[in-house]
């Protein structure tokens, strides 16, 4: 029985963690622009300073 209660606490806290993560991601505006992040990650960081 105590095992079940332990599991219960674990499962709910993990779920709550995800809920928290979801709310945080909405609040930080991650769903506002769905176009640029997937493109942005493909850019090289600072290619050579001077090319000809």
């Amino acid at each position: 029985m105590s095992v079940i209660i332990m599991l219960l606490i674990a499962s709910i806290s993990v779920a709550a963690l995800f809920l928290g993560a979801f709310i945080w991601s909405v609040r930080s505006g991650q769903y506002e622009d769905e176009m640029s992040p997937p493109v942005r990650m493909l850019f090289d960081d600072q290619p050579s300073k001077k090319t000809t």
Partner: peptide
């Protein structure tokens, strides 16, 4: 931008899934 619906949705999803499980 009104995000309250998204929050409400998130909370409802969390509770719904856990209630189902239990």
């Amino acid at each position: 931008i009104d995000r309250s619906k998204i929050y409400k949705l998130g909370v409802a999803g969390f509770c719904f899934a856990n209630i189902m499980l239990m």
